[in-house]
Design a binder for these strands. Structure first.
Lengths: 337, 337
DNA sequence: TACCATGGTCGAAGCGCTTCGATCTTGTTC
DNA sequence: GAACAAGATCGAAGCGCTTCGACCATGGTA
């Protein structure tokens, strides 16, 4: 292993000079700078991460606390994770993976041992047990999602409330008078997962504002569950002509169910989704949707974290706007026969 | 921040004694041990990770190199990742997330800066450019998957060759004489992704051994692609009565396609999958499958890595057996009318 | 009784880097 | 031409831990 002392010797300068060349924190004559850089290249020098972290009090590692629950949609999680890692690398940081089931203890551990400099926390609940920990930690953190009380926190999220509203508005604009929100599994609501709640609230609020009937029901991910949920829904509210879905995993089964029930999309039943554009465009028919910009959210979260690390001020709450794209899964409701 | 010196002072001992109490590397009198532990508890001491790593030459961090390609099945990747993280924690290690698109450079970086002690590499290709790097690195690594030449490496994988064979055998045992392997997207083959190749080889080999017709075709993930692939297949080989699928994402579309073509599963068409048991059981009908034991593979990989770190000898190649479970998607072929 | 293991503890020397203050050149300014 | 500012470089002091060798009591042995 080649150390900074080796480089210094090779270039005929002091170790501190090498350090300053590498960090740029003091001015160095072009002459010396070139000589040092050449030595670094020739020797293949790489600064030791631990030594650097110990001396500078910065590990250049971010923690990513990621949920590994089966009721969350994995590909979307993965998109968040990818965006976080990619952006972190742009700022010369690495990412330590922390599973949510380590909970408070995991967060405290990596923070108190100075393993990481800051953390991104995903899958936040309205009243999340980890939030008091984050508040006390005196280590910068950014939440993806937003809890009920955001005081003292930094949150980045899609504006799910507006997303819920947009879906209703689009259907109402098309002339639908009775629509339903096919929600997440009930366990997700019971945990008071933030995004699910906000969507629900936006949906209800917009339905009331538009004076139309908006029915809400949780829904599990399996084909059978979707089938029975939809059947129940149509039995209770035969006039439903539009559905809103806020999580990707049930969309596949839902399309199958509607086909099986003989309801064409969109002629007999309009369908709005809140999902990634990729996903919406991959379905048959292509889905009218409010985009879930996972990349943008992950990127934003890391940029804010870096900014906080550098002492910058960032807004407590950043809501990305809900953007609706009308595709092939929505149209005016069938005229009553 | 409370340091080991603070603890030492509080307990009235030398810092080295505290260290030995914590590591157990030298015997300490019960009396002192208790006093030190009490001080640790009272002061809430946590050893600084960087300092520890610098002094001991061990960061207690593993790198996980994970593919983030869109043609790989994400939930399965995630299961591997979860298993790796969970197992790593059992051995008191953390996991650094490295995306495969950082490639050789990423691996070299984390290795040469001593950011990590060892690494798990996923999504290995038959002739992977990262393998020479791993060989030279003098840092322990374990591959999930296996390349063509495993010399000097440690690999853990499902025995995909046997998995391909088992699928054929099961269908042949039921009386099928003409079957097809609906493969991965062609990009996966072009990359020579190992698992896809091995499955293919096992499939062909068993078909020949059993004296039945075994057709192979790549297949993209979209509904349209599956539809046209299956139509083409049935046009070229009308006698096909059994399908084998080796990647989860096309199973949903495939079931839809078969329904749309009026082929019942399993009465008109038997279907074998290589996928996780969870997934197989969640489909309608439940799928006969060879299990893809993601948890077991991830666990095995980390255990071997830890063993290597401790100087242990581990087998170069660990193939987990292919276990077939017959469920509702296979039955004898329809009798020719 | 003198001697030597043995267990228990300490002090000091690093691990490889960053950073602070000091020193030594230069070039400017009056 | 003396005084001074600014630029370039160095040396040393840490960062918080592990680990090595040394030391000091013991108690058992001859």
């Amino acid at each position: 292993m080649v150390t900074i002392a080796d480089v210094a010797r090779h270039a005929g300068v002091a170790a501190s000079t090498v350090s300053y060349v590498l960090s740029g924190k003091r001015s160095i004559s072009p002459d010396t700078r070139d000589r040092v850089k050449e030595s670094v290249r020739v020797l293949g020098y790489r600064p030791n991460a631990s030594a650097r972290a110990l001396a500078s009090q910065r590990s250049n590692v971010l923690a990513l606390v990621i949920p590994l629950r089966t009721d969350m949609h994995v590909p979307v999680m993965m998109q968040f994770a990818t965006a976080v890692v990619t952006t972190a690398r742009r700022f010369d940081h690495d990412v330590l993976l922390l599973t949510a089931d380590e909970g408070r203890e995991g967060i405290e551990r990596v923070a108190q041992t100075s393993l990481v400099d800051a953390m991104v926390v995903m899958d936040v609940e309205l009243h999340d047990e980890r939030i008091p920990v984050l508040r006390e930690l005196s280590m910068p953190s950014v939440l993806i999602g937003h809890p009920a009380d955001t005081a003292g926190l930094t949150c980045v999220d899609l504006d799910f409330f507006a997303a819920g509203e947009r879906c209703v508005d689009h259907l109402a604009d098309l002339g639908h008078r009775c629509i339903a929100l096919l929600g997440t599994p009930s366990t997700v609501y019971e945990r008071q997962t933030a995004f699910a709640q906000w969507t629900l609230d936006g949906f209800s609020s917009a339905a009331e504002r538009r004076g139309i009937v908006g029915v809400e029901t949780p829904c599990e991910h399996t084909f059978d569950a979707v089938l029975s949920t939809v059947e129940q829904l149509l039995r209770d509210h035969p006039g439903i002509t539009g559905l809103v879905v806020q999580n990707e995993p049930i969309i596949g089964p839902l399309l199958d169910v509607l086909r099986q029930l003989g309801r064409r999309v969109p002629e007999d039943m309009s369908l709005m989704a809140i999902c990634t554009d990729d996903f919406a465009e991959g379905q048959v028919p292509q889905l009218s949707s409010v985009a879930l910009p996972a990349d943008a959210i992950g990127l934003q979260a890391v940029e804010m974290l870096i900014s906080k690390l550098e002492g910058g001020q960032v807004p407590a709450m950043t809501l990305l706007p809900a953007q609706l794209t009308a595709r092939a899964s929505t149209c005016p409701p069938p005229t009553r026969g």
